[in-house]
Design a protein around this nucleic acid. Structure first.
Lengths: 180, 180
DNA sequence: ATAAATATAGAACAATATGTTCGGTAACAA
DNA sequence: TTGTTACCGAACATATTGTTCTATATTTAT
């Protein structure tokens, strides 16, 4: 990727995040982003077709960091093949905590809902093999609840209670949802 | 309320719902709604300031039916002072089932997220006094999880599994979330 | 039944946002 | 150095927005 492209992409992401702390996602125009990033109009459209695409790309950037297996297997909290699913959840929270600053602005209004929807898409892949309840509850229903509970935990945590540790949050989650 | 106002309001609601089944909320313009409802431009703006206000008003209409105490105390399932909280939840599901047709279109895309957010606002009021877990879990966290789990249950139910009974859905919910 | 009040239609309007195009300039890579 | 590519910035047609106005039709109250 061209150095100029990386720079422009970064300028747009930064401007977008900065704007999110000042105004809502829906009221934000492409023009606002262009002005904030101080780039040419055609340049923006060379990178992203729409505002929604930009948001999606930013989310993807974040989640690819948070959910990348390479990262999960190294660093803090020795993540071995023998670790439990609960440990893995704690791990994901650790990586979300690292990205906290980038994530914070994304929680505002309608934008937050979209962010959480993308987060859930990634979570489905992680949870799929691990959710196995008795036959009294449909599997896809249990998946929906588990994923939603996790997403809601993240929201509550990063939106005003980020002083709790990932381990604590995992305990809360497991104390609330019986199918995990 | 003037008869003409009621008629126009109804025309707008109907047009909006019909459009939602054809195109996404974000791509829908006020002009689309005006054309579909076949009303004058100024008439729309006499009723709603923005598209978002319209969506909010429609949701309010639905939820005021679903959560009205008068309705909950009469009709099916004798709702007495001695009924449990679980019964009350089942009741809410019954009333949502009645509004199923109006609600169905609201689940699409970004619109669904907004609908669920409004639903949650009503649920908070209902759940607030009834969620009392031990001190090991923060009360507002438990609220968030309970409300989100209920909202997710509604989504799963009305989006492809509406053949289940309200009682069954309540059982699933109670089987998944331990803080209820 | 009549009069006053009010809702709607429809046109016109300025202001703004969108998405595209194009030629010139600068930065990159080989 | 040379060819390639990204950026700038202006200009453009198009579409949406939200407001204002007058004429018309409907409703409500007397």
């Amino acid at each position: 990727m061209d150095r100029r492209q990386r720079r422009t992409r970064s300028l747009i992401f930064t401007a977008f995040s900065a704007l999110l702390e000042r105004k809502s996602y829906s009221s934000m125009t492409v023009q606002d982003i262009i002005d904030e990033a101080d780039i040419g109009r055609s340049t923006f459209y060379a990178h992203f077709e729409t505002k929604d695409e930009l948001l999606k790309a930013l989310c993807t950037d974040i989640f690819e960091h948070v959910f990348s297996e390479e990262i999960m297997s190294e660093e803090h909290h020795d993540f071995s093949a023998h670790s439990t699913f609960k440990d893995r959840i704690t791990h994901i929270l650790y990586h979300l905590q690292e990205k906290q600053q980038s994530v914070k602005g994304l929680f505002s209004g309608e934008c937050g809902e979209i962010f959480l929807r993308y987060l859930k898409e990634y979570l489905y892949r992680v949870f799929d093999e691990h959710i196995a309840v008795n036959d009294s509850i449909p599997h896809d229903y249990a998946m929906d609840i588990a994923v939603a509970a996790f997403a809601e935990t993240v929201r509550w945590w990063l939106k005003g209670h980020s002083d709790y540790t990932p381990e604590q949050m995992t305990d809360y989650l497991y104390g609330s949802v019986s199918i995990l």
